[in-house]
Amino acid sequence: MKQGIRAEWYFLLGGLLLFGGAFLATQFLNRYLLYILVLMGIYSIATVSLNLTNGYAGLFSLGHAAFMAIGAYTSTLLTFPLALREAYELPMLPAFLGGPNFVWPFFPAICMGGVLASVAALLIGAPVLRLRGHYLSVASLGFVVIVTTLAKTMKGLTRGPMGISAIPSYTNIYWTYLWLLITVYVIWRIVNSRFGRAMMALREDETAAQVLGVYPMKYKLMSFVVGAFFAGVAGGLYAHFTKAIRPFEFSFFLTFQIVVMLILGGMGTTAGPIVGAVSLLTLRYALKPLEEHLKIYGLIEIIYAVLLIVVMLFKPEGLVGQKRGVKKITVGGKSSA
């Protein structure tokens, strides 16, 4: 960002426009379209945060759904109405979280969900981020299995497979887009600082980054933890939006959708993840009538997968990504002498 302070003003202006648009949307759009807009916001938060780890730091993590689950269950448990806790066999809050007569307000509860997701990222990141490439992907996928299994079995906290319903409906278009703005802002700032540069350096060539003074573990963990925070936030928003969460919603399938959105939009770009999330959700809801009409359920998923293959074949850098590393002049390469 060479123009310095100015870019911040553009950001603020964009934010105001976004909120103006959100206001207009609440005035003129029907509930169904509003629902889709909020969902786009939530998925965008998840995709933008995944972009930090997978796009900029080059750590192809598939654990995002697990962090979303942690955020969703955390903020649900913190905000769940006192009157219903007994009926739902959910515990009262312990003293250090405010005691049995306390219910958390929405904003801090969402933040707490993010924090817990970050803590989880810190704990599993330390061993898992030592792995590279496919090994990291598979290990992070294992983390999703652990978290969903725990959500199914820790019935005292999560009510197991039947899930928690009657979650207070706090998430609206304003909250969602406020968090989206925060997410985009934070990640944009990180990417344009020495922290983001260190992450990109590690993605490009870890050994070279290291001899230039970048400590790999520190910056890998940082990208993982920050990404997990916003995944936790997205999970929390999702819980208070759909008002019901069940463990299987946070399975590999959720990760897959977010990863497809990111790859389709363009990894390691600012706009890519949002473009990916919005276009895939648009496609989903545009095709929904078709799916129902033809009674081929799962058609949308098949289209997602085909689309992913097509994009990988013809525009691997994603919709908004720029072609990179086109060699203009190739000379023999490494000297063997």
Partner: peptide, 17 residues
């Protein structure tokens, strides 16, 4: 071992780490 897909400027900026 350059940072192949980054610009020349970015390659240098990183080195100031």
């Amino acid at each position: 071992r350059l940072f192949p897909s980054l610009t020349v400027e970015m390659n240098l900026r990183i080195a100031y780490h």
